[in-house]
Design a protein around this nucleic acid. Structure first.
Lengths: 248, 248
DNA sequence: GCGTTCGCTTGATCCATGTCAACCATAAAT
DNA sequence: ATTTATGGTTGACATGGATCAAGCGAACGC
């Protein structure tokens, strides 16, 4: 029994426009590997597609968890707050990536998700995702992979925070961004940062001054050109070398 | 069609002895919340129960992934190795916890799992786990929670590495261990460390000398008594205060 | 157009932790 | 019992990044 809105062509159009099946991110997002028919089932499940204005929260730590979110467009950060006021950015998320996986554990979100630019998200009610993934094996398996990938990513960040020095961290960060922009069809060598130096620093376990100095140093050495948030990578291999060549 | 070993009482006995249904860790492990009947299905799935001697690898980074492992007894560490030789301990795992979740993502293990004492593990073939969790909703949901909990844990470590200083990190580490030992019915105030100062340091992003000095300092201040690997916590609140009270 | 604000850069100084080195304790090997 | 190896402690010193402080540039509101 397909849902229709015979009295409102607008709504129908908007639904079609934002369906997973038409979304050019589907190969990066949850639908990866699904057949057309399965895609439709997933589409029916996505309850809400919503705009989040820059600076607004998608969810806050402590709120009840009931859905995970796929980013349709835009850019987010997640951060964790400690009682004593310290906070840390735990990640930056871009189109096609999922937000909210941390909430499954306790049924409450454990971090804040904040839009760093005007964004659009698709809300996927988690209980329905579990139902559907019992039916669609591909979806089940892919969802598991996505969660696992998040764990692997976190290990990478732990590595970075635990063993790398400031410039290595920043080089790794830039290369990671570049790679993710590339996967989305953008230039690998030129992009705008959506986050401040302070947010980068928080993510990398550094102070904003240190981030700024490292940017300047990279520029002096010809690895990149920086102008505020505009980054051009001039020498990828230089950055890669920076990441690894280190006196242990 | 139940599997039996009519010709070999030994085997039957050993299987019974190590079944999930008889395992006193089942409330900490994957079987949480399952009915007796479901437990039996899970039991049938666990393909291997294996001993791992201290120092031996359960799996190595790069190996094909096909099972996750539940720790039946013992103690493990996982670590990640970078090309340039740097490595980092990404976690310490004890009885009832799962190992290998990181391998789902790429179908290859991304870290090494090494026994820190003689241990026993249950191997759970992942494809069969996916099949079974399509049938047993409770299992499916709990598995998702376990993965999510791992993500939350990793965020905690990122917080620790990114914002805490040496003594705060060590205090957090000790309190975490204490809490996990308690959950397993051991003393919360007295335990033996299974890992070296170097391994603790690697996990906490510190050098072994710094770890050693922090232990000594805690002892001087009366928070703990240390003698090599034997730890007694004398003042839990002292440690908690150490973790939070900090001039930002 | 002009001030105000916010984010960024740069310099000077300080300090927590790393590094290097010596020594000690425990356990295993002979 | 003695040697050897491994892990732990402690001290002296070096240093990377934090902190404090000043100034600059771009964006925004008026």
């Amino acid at each position: 029994m397909p849902q229709t809105h015979p009295l409102n062509q607008e709504v129908t159009l908007s639904v079609i426009k934002t369906a997973c099946s038409n979304c050019n991110l589907r190969e990066l997002c949850l639908p990866l590997g699904l057949t057309l028919e399965e895609l439709e089932q997933l589409d029916n499940m996505v309850s809400t597609r919503r705009r989040i204005k820059r600076g607004d929260h998608l969810y806050r730590a402590g709120e009840a968890f009931d859905a995970i979110y796929a980013i349709r467009s835009g850019f987010f950060k997640t951060d964790v707050l400690l009682e004593d006021g310290r906070d840390q950015v735990t990640g930056f998320q871009m189109a096609g990536e999922l937000l909210g996986l941390d909430g499954i554990s306790t049924e409450h979100h454990t971090c804040n998700a904040i839009a760093l630019e005007d964004s659009e998200i698709c809300a996927i009610p988690f209980s329905r995702l579990e139902v559907l993934s019992r039916e669609i094996h591909t979806l089940q398996h892919h969802f598991h992979k996505v969660m696992s990938r998040e764990i692997v990513r976190d290990h990478g960040v732990m590595m970075l925070l635990g063993t790398m020095r400031a410039e290595e961290r920043l080089a790794a960060f830039l290369l990671n961004l570049s790679q993710r922009f590339t996967a989305r069809g953008f230039s690998h060598a030129e992009f705008y940062l959506r986050m401040t130096r302070e947010e980068i620093g928080s993510y990398l376990g550094l102070k904003l001054e240190t981030v700024s100095r490292a940017f300047s140093r990279f520029q002096e050495e010809g690895h990149i050109a920086v102008q505020q948030k505009h980054i051009r990578i001039l020498n990828v291999n230089g950055l890669k070398a920076l990441m690894h060549h280190r006196a242990v």
